[in-house]
């Protein structure tokens, strides 16, 4: 069961990639946080993440958790975005055997999970080859 209230609270991050940028030292946090770990400031402005980046590392999931069984094998990677922010995401529309560290990726809006056949559908970001 997917908590639809938690999913709903995260909509600004999942749908619009809204991050918090420290107005004092410029550090960007995704997801947003209350206190900057760089300068202890509590003042942030909302910024949108860069939507392209480079694959820094990844793993291939062959035995998936419940709800993702149809997608195996699939890749989950850490992507360093062009604004310097690192983000963990599924990487799709690619042959996992041919995926390489350093590959250029871009963000797309996709279905992330659904709560069975009758439950809520959760949307969010995934990454695809940029070419």
């Amino acid at each position: 069961m997917i908590g639809s209230s938690r999913y709903w609270r995260e909509v600004p991050q999942r749908y619009r990639y809204e991050a918090a940028k420290c107005t004092k030292c410029g550090k960007i946090f995704f997801p947003p946080r209350l206190v900057c770990n760089g300068c202890r400031s509590r003042e942030f402005e909302t910024v949108t993440l860069a939507q392209e980046g480079v694959l820094e590392t990844f793993t291939v999931i062959r035995v998936a958790p419940t709800g993702f069984g149809d997608e195996t094998p699939y890749a989950v990677g850490i992507i360093k975005l062009d604004d310097g922010v690192r983000i963990t995401s599924q990487v799709v529309d690619c042959d996992v055997e041919k995926l390489n560290i350093g590959d250029r990726l871009r963000l797309e809006f996709r279905k992330v999970q659904e709560d069975g056949e009758s439950g809520v559908i959760c949307y969010g970001y995934k990454f695809v080859p940029a070419n």
Binding site: D70, E71, V92, D93, E108, F109, R110, K111, V112, I121, Y123, K126
Partner: peptide, 15 residues
């Protein structure tokens, strides 16, 4: 793909 539907494609086209 199984993670694409009318909503996801509409978002991309709209952007």
């Amino acid at each position: 793909t199984p993670d694409q539907d009318t909503i996801t494609m509409s978002v991309e086209a709209s952007r």
